[in-house]
């Protein structure tokens, strides 16, 4: 039940999926809001600190997610899925992962552009690995902003596709990301 099977996702995958979804939307909202805070706002220092700290946590979670994905059985695609649906889904999922990673790395490169480390909740520092590139914080900042919007749009598409499978195709695409498939249970294909 924790691990994936060829029939569906285990709890670990399911929980990570929804945690990542929650983190992505929260970080987007927080980032969007924090850049326009007034200088005397109570959140002026706290909001960016939380954005960066949770961003680093999300990165760690995503690295674990990749490892988990590679070391677990891969749930088979549902038999009613069309070839074009499978192709688009594959491309879409790859883009979601790729954009999210580049998005997180670009954010890291803004804050570490001058060689300063990123403090995670004040508990520990993540050091700067790449700093002092020409216009680093500007270029990384532009990439961060563009990819944040791209990820928002793409994940909305991802959600719409899931809803389409659930309500129009009436298949188990969405429900198997809500709870693990019971192997004795007969699935609607």
């Amino acid at each position: 039940m924790l691990k994936n099977s060829t029939q569906g996702y285990g709890w670990v995958t399911i929980i990570i999926h929804w945690l990542v979804a929650l983190a992505v939307f929260s970080l987007f909202a927080l980032g969007y809001w924090m850049v326009d805070l007034s200088y005397y706002s109570d959140w002026y220092q706290t909001a960016p600190m939380l954005h960066k700290s949770f961003g680093i946590c999300l990165f760690a979670l995503m690295v674990f997610r990749i490892i988990w994905r590679l070391t677990n059985p891969k749930p088979k695609g549902l038999s009613n899925h069309q070839t074009w649906e499978k192709t688009i889904a594959k491309l879409g999922h790859f883009a979601l992962y790729a954009i999210l990673f580049v998005l997180m790395i670009s954010g890291y490169l803004i804050s570490t552009a001058d060689g300063r480390a990123i403090s995670v909740f004040g508990w520990f520092d993540v050091p700067a690995l790449l700093s002092g590139l020409p216009q680093q914080e500007e270029i990384a900042g532009d990439i961060h902003e563009i990819l944040a919007w791209s990820l928002l749009v793409l994940s909305a598409g991802h959600a719409l596709a899931a809803l389409k499978h659930h309500f129009i195709d009436k298949d188990s695409t969405l429900s198997r990301m809500l709870k693990p498939v019971n192997s004795t249970e007969t699935r609607k294909q």
Binding site: P48, I110, S111, T112, A113, D114, R116, Q135, Q136, E137, E138, G141
Partner: peptide
């Protein structure tokens, strides 16, 4: 004006 440098990348980005 792009060349503003206050020895803090995040602040410089904000100033720009």
């Amino acid at each position: 004006t792009k060349s503003v440098n206050s020895n803090h990348a995040e602040r410089d980005k904000h100033i720009r």
